[in-house]
């Protein structure tokens, strides 16, 4: 067992659950329903995201292409964020979720620094409905829904049925069949995180493109506005 985790990696361990998501990129149409559903589900404030769909255009007219890459916490089987947390506020659940105990979090942001996926954020104090703020938050794989036998909200609303969720250890589950039967990739698996969000199947070059900094003015000016807005706020790391 990797040290510092509260639960052992459960992928492939018989008798244990291992929730996982498969994202079929052929089916993602960039409709952003998942983003809106997630924001509504958790009253996620503006400026932070539990899930998002990255968009990138490549090629030259008329051979232009557009690519989507939905992103969320990978609920790693070997999560680097968990080991580093000084208060065990973030922990690994038996069934594979990586979760956050808000009542313990001190928002030191070590977990954010540890996460190679930018899957974590500090919740602002100004929120609409839910009175949790000033702590680190992240995607929970909709633990409260999944434990009630529902799929996560983003999966529920996914128009293209691009997001598929289930127990990877159950040989009859759709995710198990897809991971076993389709060419899939995980993001930054070379970091040793054992991510549990599987993608069918982007070309490596597309993945790289999507990670690149914004190039268009439209995106860059948004980035500038974002960092301008955050400047001088607590937790702002001083970029731009």
């Amino acid at each position: 067992m990797p040290i510092g985790l509260q639960a052992e990696p459960s992928a492939g361990v018989a008798g244990k659950k291992r929730w996982a998501m498969v994202i079929d990129l052929r089916r993602c149409i960039g409709c952003m329903a998942c983003v809106a559903a997630c924001k509504a589900e958790y009253d996620v404030p503006l400026g932070v995201w539990r899930t998002i769909v990255k968009v990138k255009d490549t090629g030259q007219y008329p051979n232009t292409k557009r690519h989507f890459l939905p992103r969320l916490c990978n609920h790693c089987d070997n999560p680097p964020c968990v080991r580093n947390c000084p208060t065990e506020a973030t922990y690994k659940h038996e069934e594979g979720y990586v979760l956050q105990r808000y009542e313990r979090c001190i928002a030191c942001r070590t977990c954010m620094a540890a996460c190679p996926y930018n899957a974590r954020h500090v919740l602002p104090n100004s929120r609409t409905r839910v009175k949790i703020g000033g702590v680190v938050d992240k995607c929970t794989f909709c633990e409260h829904r999944v434990s009630n036998n529902l799929v996560p909200a983003c999966v529920q609303t996914c128009l293209g049925r691009s997001r598929i969720f289930g127990d990877l250890n159950d040989p009859n589950s759709e995710v198990h069949k897809l991971v076993g039967g389709m060419p899939t990739v995980t993001l930054k698996s070379e970091k040793g995180t054992k991510p549990q969000v599987y993608y069918i199947k982007p070309a490596q070059q597309i993945v790289n493109q999507i990670y690149s900094p914004p190039e268009s003015y439209a995106a860059k000016s948004d980035a500038e506005a974002f960092y301008r807005h955050n400047k001088g706020r607590q937790f702002f790391g001083g970029v731009l």
């Binding site: 105990r101 808000y102 100004s126 839910v130 009175k131 949790i132 703020g133």
Partner: peptide, 14 residues
């Protein structure tokens, strides 16, 4: 607007 911690904190953390 400041948020006060709410007793529901615990539940929300799963």
């Amino acid at each position: 607007a400041r948020l006060e911690s709410s007793p529901e904190f615990r539940k929300a953390s799963g």
